[in-house]
C-alpha cells in the first residue's frame, strides 16, 4: 500500500509534466490539424533556458528559491515562446495549403536542426542542474516504508494546476480563445469575419511553447539532469498523452498526461524499467487502433 501510494505520487508529478507538453500538441492539432513535430525540441530548449536562468540567478546572488523560480519561469516562457513563434513562421506558415505531409516533414527537419543546434552550442554532455528545491515531508508510514512528498513535487503539481486553470479560462473567456475556437472550426469563415488567422495560429504556437518551457523547467528541477536529446522521448510521450486524451481537447491532454505518467511509473515500479518506454509506445499504438478519437475527443467526420 505504501509502495503504491509513493508510486502514485511520483506518477502524478510526472503526469503533470507530460500534460503541460501535451497541451501544446493538442492546441496546434486542434487549430491547424497538424502534429507539431518540433514541440519536443521547444520543451528541451525551455529546459536549457531554465538551466541557464538558474545559473544566472545564482551568479547574481538571488538566494531565495521562490524568487528564482518565478524569474526563471517567466524568462523560460518568454524566450521559448520566441522559438515557438519561429518554428511556426519558418516551417508551418509557408506550407499552409501545401500537401498534407509537407509541414510534418519540414517540422521533422526543424526538430533535427534544433537538436543539433543545441548540441553544437551547448555541448553533447548531460548538464547537471543542481538542486533548487530540496526537502519534503513524510505523508505516512506503513510496513516500514515512508511515503514521502517532496516540496518539489508539490510545486510541480501546483504550477501545473494553476497554469491549466489559467489556460482553460483563456480559451473559454477571452477574445483570443474565441478566435482560436473560431479558427479551429472554420479558418476561412473566421478570416471572413475579421479574425486575424495568421496571428491566432502564431499565438497558439507561442502559448504551446510557453507551456512546454514550463514543463522543461519542471523537468530540469525534478530530474536534475538534461541533455539535448530529452525532447525526442518526452515529445513522443506527450504526444501519446494528447492522443490518449483525445487530440484537440484541453482536459483530454491533461488526463492523457496523467495516464501516461501512471502507466510509465507503475510499469517501471512493478514490471521492468527497461520496457517502460515500450509500454508507452504500445499504449499509443493500441489507442490509435481501437479508439483514435481518444478518451475525451470528438469523432472526426471525413468530408469529401
Amino acid at each position: 500500500m505504501a509502495y503504491f501510494s509513493q508510486q502514485l505520487i511520483n506518477a502524478i508529478t510526472l503526469g503533470a509534466i507530460y500534460g503541460l507538453i501535451a497541451i501544446g500538441y493538442t492546441m496546434v492539432y486542434g487549430i491547424i490539424g497538424m502534429i507539431n513535430f518540433a514541440h519536443g525540441e521547444v520543451f528541451m530548449i525551455g529546459a536549457f533556458i531554465s538551466l541557464i536562468g538558474f545559473m544566472i540567478c545564482s551568479f547574481l546572488g538571488i538566494g531565495s528559491a521562490p524568487v528564482a523560480i518565478l524569474l526563471v519561469l517567466l524568462m523560460a516562457m518568454a524566450f521559448s515562446a520566441v522559438y515557438g513563434w519561429a518554428v511556426e513562421r519558418a516551417a508551418y506558415r509557408p506550407l499552409r495549403g501545401s500537401f498534407r505531409l509537407a509541414p510534418l516533414i519540414s517540422a521533422i527537419g526543424v526538430s533535427i536542426a534544433l537538436q543539433n543546434y543545441v548540441q553544437l552550442v551547448q555541448g553533447a554532455r548531460p548538464k547537471p542542474g543542481g538542486q533548487i528545491v530540496s526537502g519534503g515531508f513524510n505523508l505516512f508510514s506503513a510496513d516500514g516504508f515512508d511515503v514521502r512528498v517532496s516540496w518539489l513535487q508539490i510545486i510541480i503539481v501546483v504550477v501545473t494546476v494553476v497554469l491549466m486553470a489559467g489556460f482553460t479560462w483563456l480559451i473559454a473567456r477571452t477574445s483570443l480563445g474565441r478566435q482560436q475556437r473560431a479558427c479551429e472550426q472554420d479558418m476561412k469563415m473566421a478570416a471572413l469575419l475579421g479574425v486575424n488567422v495568421d496571428r491566432t495560429i502564431s499565438l497558439t504556437f507561442v502559448l504551446g511553447a510557453a507551456l512546454a518551457a514550463v514543463a522543461g523547467m519542471l523537468f530540469l528541477m525534478y530530474y536534475g539532469v538534461i541533455d539535448f536529446y530529452i525532447g525526442f522521448l518526452a515529445g513522443i510521450k506527450a504526444f501519446t498523452a494528447a492522443v490518449l486524451g483525445g487530440i484537440g481537447s484541453l482536459p483530454g491532454a491533461m488526463l492523457g498526461g496523467l495516464m501516461i505518467g501512471l502507466i510509465e511509473v507503475f510499469w517501471a515500479g512493478y514490471f521492468s524499467s527497461e520496457y517502460k518506454d515500450v509500454a508507452v509506445f504500445a499504449i499509443l499504438v493500441l489507442v490509435l487502433i481501437f479508439r483514435p478519437t481518444g478518451l475525451l475527443g470528438k469523432p472526426e467526420i471525413e468530408k469529401v
Binding site: 497538424m34 502534429i35 498534407r100 505531409l101 504500445a282 499504438v285 490509435l288
Partner: peptide, 24 residues
C-alpha cells in the same frame, strides 16, 4: 492493424513501432 489510420497518425504509429523494435 494500423494501416487504416490517416496520414499523420500512421506516421506517429510507425514511429512508435520503430522505437519499440529498437528498444526490444
Amino acid at each position: 492493424p494500423v494501416l487504416r489510420l490517416r496520414g499523420d497518425y500512421l506516421a506517429i504509429v510507425t514511429l512508435g513501432f520503430g522505437e519499440i523494435i529498437r528498444l526490444v
